[in-house]
């Protein structure tokens, strides 16, 4: 061990300076010491990933603060979450008329809900919404929903929490805070925009998406609710409007004036496009999905019985053939012995 030589004699010490206490004892051996190298651990492992944007606001292609972008996002979620959607054209309907139409619609749907809850089925009349949409933004959102299907999520690039290479167990996507990153999978990302702006792909619903539009969205395909909505909004022979004696408020001039300016154009049911007749056909399915299931069970039961009969018949005939052959051979054997 080298001798400890004081670099400065006591006389040179800075007198009574509380601001620099570190200068009080300084040794030559310590003066030559270098800063320690980074730990080995740090050189072989990456730094923990940091999320560079709020988790609910990944960077978007268009400026996120404008109304258009938010409507686009909203319409995407609307399209994804409603399997049954009716598309109407509205021609200069006044606010009072809209109010009347919505009131009658919700009353009719509530009636259906009451019937369903009595039968023990699920009810969702409150979630059925009738809203005016911005046609161009809706068309664009529809293209994103139809054509942008990211197979991987942003979390696919994240190392597994149990992987010894990661210093953290939190799953944080390793995406950058710029819209250029191609790993983003949300509907407002640049990748979604590019997928949707492919002009070669055509949406079936495209000819309908022009002019003033309103959509009625159902959270589930329920022919009962559809029937009630059609009889209010687009009455026809199969779905007659309620009589004046039953619901007098439906025949108020405000409601009727609004309904005259409302036209049913078509429907989008589970991704498929239906015209007016097709929509009425879906509304006419008796008993809804349960009715269809009952019909299917009935058909399958009939088929099962006949199939069992057919299979049984084959084995029975085989049995008879073999038995006949055995009898025949036995007879021959007997006959041989007799001769």
């Amino acid at each position: 061990m080298p001798p400890r030589i004081r670099l400065r004699p006591r006389a040179m010490r800075v007198l009574n300076s509380p601001s620099q206490p570190s200068l009080q004892y300084t040794y030559a051996s310590l003066a030559t010491a270098t800063t320690p190298a980074a730990p080995v651990d740090q050189t072989i492992r990456s730094i923990p990933p940091i999320l560079r944007y709020p988790p609910t606001q990944p960077p978007s292609h268009k400026p996120p603060e404008v109304r258009k972008t938010q409507l686009h996002r909203q319409y995407q979620s609307l399209l994804r979450s409603s399997p049954l959607m009716l598309i109407f054209q509205h021609n200069n309907i006044k606010a009072v008329q809209w109010m009347g139409i919505r009131r009658e619609l919700s009353a009719a749907l509530a009636k259906v809900d009451a019937e369903r809850s009595a039968a023990g089925q699920e009810t969702f009349a409150e979630e059925i919404k009738f809203q005016v949409i911005q046609t161009g933004i809706f068309a664009s959102a529809l293209r994103v929903v139809e054509f942008f299907h990211p197979e991987e999520s942003t979390l696919d690039h994240v190392p597994h929490p149990t992987d010894p290479a990661t210093p953290t167990s939190a799953k944080i996507p390793n995406t950058k805070n710029t819209p250029e990153d191609v790993r983003f999978t949300h509907g407002l990302s640049r990748r979604a925009h590019e997928a949707a702006s492919n002009k070669k792909l055509k949406v079936e619903l495209e000819p309908l998406l022009s002019g003033p539009l309103a959509v009625l969205t159902f959270p589930s395909v329920s022919p009962q609710h559809l029937k009630a909505a059609l009889s209010i909004l687009a009455p026809s022979l199969d779905f007659p409007a309620p009589k004046r004696k039953v619901i007098p408020s439906y025949h108020e001039p405000e409601v009727q004036g609004g309904l005259q300016n409302l036209m049913l154009l078509g429907a989008r049911i589970e991704g498929k496009v239906f015209d007016q007749e097709g929509t009425r056909w879906v509304g006419g399915i008796a008993g809804g999905i349960d009715g269809l299931r009952a019909q299917l069970v009935h058909v399958l039961q009939g088929a099962g019985a006949s199939l069992a009969g057919a299979l049984e018949g084959a084995s029975r005939s085989l049995y008879f053939a073999i038995e006949g052959r055995r009898m025949d051979m036995e007879e021959k054997e007997k006959g041989g012995k007799v001769e």
Binding site: Q89, N91, N92, Q97, E206, L208, S210, G211, D275
Partner: peptide, 19 residues
């Protein structure tokens, strides 16, 4: 309504005032 050429027909309807 499913014909792209019927656009002008639909827009024509929307030009009428509500009354």
């Amino acid at each position: 309504p499913f014909s792209p050429r019927s656009k002008s027909a639909r827009v024509f309807l929307s030009l009428f005032p509500s009354n």
